[in-house]
Amino acid sequence: MTPRLPHQSRGLQLTLILCALVFIGFFLLLPLVAVFAEALAKGFGTYTAALVDPDALSAIELTLLVAAISVPLNVVFGLCAAWAIAKFDFRGKSVLCTLIDLPFSVSPVVAGLVYVLLFGAQGWFGPWLIDHGVRIIFAVPGIILATILVTFPFVARELIPLMEEQGRTDEEAALALGASGFRTFLRVTLPNIKWGLLYGVLLCNARAMGEFGAVSVVSGHLRGLTNTMPLHVEILYNEYNFAAAFAVASLLALLALVTLVLKTSLEWKFGYSHGSTR
């Protein structure tokens, strides 16, 4: 950190700090406090009742299931993409990187819509799927697909710069000493990238559990069947069941806080700095 600059008066400094604190307070801290305050507004009994409600429980279950499938798939993809991009030189590398980043700039609603256009009743494969009794849209597979699409770049984007920086000399040494390719990956590459991988998984998981727009388009909002936690929050809220909506929302807010704490401790303890801020 840079020391205080001599030319800046103490008064100006305090004013700027105060402005920033007020801004952060109003825009970041207050909404977070509001979630927990509103969740407990009608007492602790109402709060727990909202969480053990069967619909809420099945929403929690579905959210965990969706994350449990989409996050590992993104890890496999991220490892493959980073291996290919960081360890080899080929033409069109930057195009490939841009395409991997593409889902970040697509609106979640559009991400959901493209799957409806492919697999919905009016979609290209819709009639075929109906004939074969397979449901993708308004069912769990659609939710998983949409989640994979919106979380697509998370792990890859974390690993690519990290592995590029590390080069491939370690791997080449292991291979020259006779290790197999897979063993080299497990014993040399993986230990080198574990914190970056964990970081990517953390971000990917939080987004997967919290995704709303894309999932909302493909889910069909069937209570107890295709409702994830964020969608359950919306339903309760629209029914003016605010205390219950905020109760479920508080679980998601806790998830966000845990993610932030883990992410920050990774940054502090291991000096792991994020790809973009490097």
């Binding site: 980043d101 970040f104 998370f154 953390l202 939080a206 987004r207 932030l260």
Partner: peptide, 8 residues
């Protein structure tokens, strides 16, 4: 969340 990931 993209924690910072969207920045990437």
């Amino acid at each position: 969340i993209a924690l910072s990931s969207q920045l990437q």
